[in-house]
Design a protein around this nucleic acid. Structure first.
Length: 620
DNA sequence: AGGTCGTTGTTATT
DNA sequence: AATAACAACGACCT
């Protein structure tokens, strides 16, 4: 009897450059089942917005069609049960000899794959895995560094060089074996009732687990409607075919590809955007990072002088992705939180995560230590902060599922160290729900970067919600695109509309009024909210608090963080001194900005109020 | 121990 | 458009 192989697709929804699929085909199998399991973990427990579900279905449909082209009897078979429970039953019922899949170093997949592997080995099934989600095998990077995480791009580059050249992409298969019979002669196990973190956005509570083989009983892929979802809003569509076409277009544009410098690409450019927009395809594995890398690198080598180099080049972007994956591979599940993460600086943010004292892991809930901060967070999320640059980005994020990297910097800095002083984990959760390209390692890593918790430390470099956008887009076209209320606003005031005289507001057909939460009443004109705080004042407060946090120098693994005895280590009054209620009267905001003296003397007072600090802690 | 540099800050000045 | 001051972190190199 020949090999009877399950190829388990997960975050590798592609046929081109799949080392794991190649090794499955090298077994010369008698039969091969390409399967995808609907995992209750991703349906109920991980945050996932409608746009990302749409993108996933796109990728699945495209892959399924490509598989059928290679073998009319085959397609991507969707199985609706948790892999941990259904795979052992399939092993037996389908007389499987091998299961092959691409490795996944995220927290939950590691746990899941260990369980599946143990069950397979117990049943005498051979498990074969390959790395293919990153340029280098993240675990090999960690091993080479004796378990230490890559905390800078230099470290990743150095270690990568030691491991040798990034493997060249391998061609897509030209044919696939037949699938074998797929009897379901066992009890199916619907997911255990659990809290559905995504229930708000569903129209139906049932998410398509009507039967293990799907609504039509043919292991087919469901529609958004069958999944209980309203339509997605994103214009970005998924699938390997689109990814390869987009990559071809990028490579065809030799100048663009060879001279690409990330910091020079505009966050305000839209239709078309200034960057490649290939990240969502990398996330779902519809595009191999190694294929992307080598197509760009070969072009760059041929281009000669004048080509950009890492870290600003396109290949540099892929290196950063590997850096975050390798950091997560070394640090483990704590990488996506501050608590128990010894490489993440502890900063006493507002709205910190609640922690399960038994596991030391965050629970998904957070402490509302400040009603004001909670309001700021809600307004940030909805895109009604009153700062048009921030709001435009947040609205684009919600609608399209993608914003430019520097736009992400703007809103992340604003939420954390450069405005609201709110826990980066709150922002990361919002990105996790809304981003098409959400990657747990990259998301957590970038939020730590922007909040100056790890990877990046120059907290005195602070993005202005007014100046930064204006530098890229003087006329405010990007703001007008996403905040139509402001589309006729004079360019002079487009980034700070509260400064516009009433006559100008009337002429533009909009009133700058309201708290960004409730609908303003009795306004005949459209409205756009007043800014939720004086940015300059908040920046000074945040920067002083950051300096304090750096002086205290506590990290996420310090015992005093877990037991709460850290309280008192920080100049906690630093945050509670903007008492003079702004309320409705932000019109004199200009007048206030000049009062730096206030802030200076406050900070002098704080220094004098000498709270005793614990001796400086150091990580080693 | 000390100097330089780090993918992507802001503002004022030349 | 380029440059300096702002205030001043930590990795990396010598």
């Amino acid at each position: 009897m020949g090999a009877r192989v399950i190829y388990w697709f997960r975050t590798d929804l592609r046929l081109h450059d799949s080392p794991a699929l190649q090794v499955a085909l090298d077994l010369n199998p008698e039969v091969l089942w390409p399967i995808f399991t609907w995992d209750p973990h991703y349906v109920y427990k991980a945050r996932g917005g409608l746009n990302r579900w749409q993108f996933l279905l796109d990728c699945q449909m495209d892959l399924s069609a490509s598989i059928t082209k290679l073998n009319p009897k085959s397609k991507l078979f969707l199985i609706r049960e948790a892999p941990q429970t259904v795979l052992p039953k399939l092993f037996k019922s389908w007389k499987v000899t091998h299961i092959v899949f691409e490795r996944d170093t995220d927290a939950y997949p590691r746990e899941r794959d260990a369980a599946v592997t143990a069950a397979a080995e117990a049943a005498g099934i051979k498990v074969i895995t390959r790395s293919g989600r990153t340029l280098w095998d993240s675990d090999a990077i960690v091993k080479q560094r004796d378990g230490k995480p890559t905390m800078s791009i230099t470290q990743l580059q150095t270690t990568g060089k030691q491991l040798g050249l990034i493997p060249r992409p391998i061609p897509a298969p030209t044919s696939l074996p037949d699938p074998g019979p797929m009897p379901l002669d066992f009890e199916s196990e619907p997911p255990a009732p659990t809290e559905d973190i995504n229930s708000e956005q569903r129209t139906k509570s049932d998410t398509g687990y009507m039967s293990i083989a799907g609504p039509k009983g043919d292991f087919g892929i469901e529609t958004m409607e069958e999944l209980g979802f309203p339509s997605a809003t994103t214009p970005h569509r998924g699938g390997e075919s689109i990814a390869l076409r987009m990559l071809d277009d990028i490579i065809d544009n030799e100048e663009y590809t060879a001279k690409f410098e990330k910091p020079k690409t505009s966050p305000a450019q839209f239709e078309p955007q200034s960057t490649t927009l290939l990240s969502p395809f990398l996330h779902f594995g519809a595009l191999s990072p190694r294929l992307f890398y080598w197509r760009v690198q070969d072009l760059t080598d041929a281009y000669g002088n004048g080509a950009s180099k890492p870290p600003t080049s396109i290949t540099g972007q892929l290196l950063f992705r590997d850096m975050y994956f390798a950091a997560q591979a070394a640090i483990g599940p704590a990488f996506t939180q501050t608590i128990r993460n010894r490489h993440c600086r502890f900063i006493p943010w507002h709205l910190r995560s609640k922690v399960d004292p038994k596991t030391g892991m965050v629970t998904g809930e957070y402490e509302i230590d400040s009603e004001e901060a909670e309001v700021w967070f809600q307004r940030w999320k909805r895109g009604t902060t009153g700062f048009p640059w921030i709001d435009a980005l947040m609205r684009q994020l919600r609608h399209d599922g993608w914003i430019h990297h520097l736009g992400r910097h703007s809103v992340a800095c604003f939420l954390t160290r450069g405005g609201c002083y709110i826990d980066w984990e709150r922002g990361a959760e919002v990105f996790e729900e809304l981003l098409l390209d959400h990657e747990p390692a990259c998301n957590a890593g970038n939020w730590q970067w922007l909040s100056c918790s790890a990877f990046f430390h120059q907290y005195f470099r602070c993005y202005s919600p007014i100046a930064f956008g204006r530098n890229w887009d003087k006329n405010g076209d990007f703001v007008r695109r996403w905040i139509p209320e402001l589309k006729d606003f004079p360019a002079k005031f487009i980034y700070e509309p509260w400064k516009a005289p009433i006559q100008d507001q009337k002429k533009a057909g909009v009133r700058i009024t309201g708290d960004g939460i409730s609908e303003p009443k009795d306004s005949e004109l459209a409205t756009y909210p007043k800014p939720m705080f004086d940015f300059n004042k908040r920046r000074d407060i945040c920067m002083a608090a950051m300096k304090d946090a750096y002086d205290v120098a506590l990290f996420g693994d310090d015992p005093c963080i877990m037991d709460g005895t850290w309280k008192g280590s920080f100049l906690s009054d630093i945050e509670n001194q903007d008492e003079d209620d702004e309320e409705d009267d932000m019109s004199d905001v200009d007048g206030r900005i000049d009062k730096e003296e206030d802030v200076k003397s406050e900070s002098g007072k704080r220094k004098g109020s000498s709270k005793t600090k614990p001796s400086k802690k150091r990580k080693n």
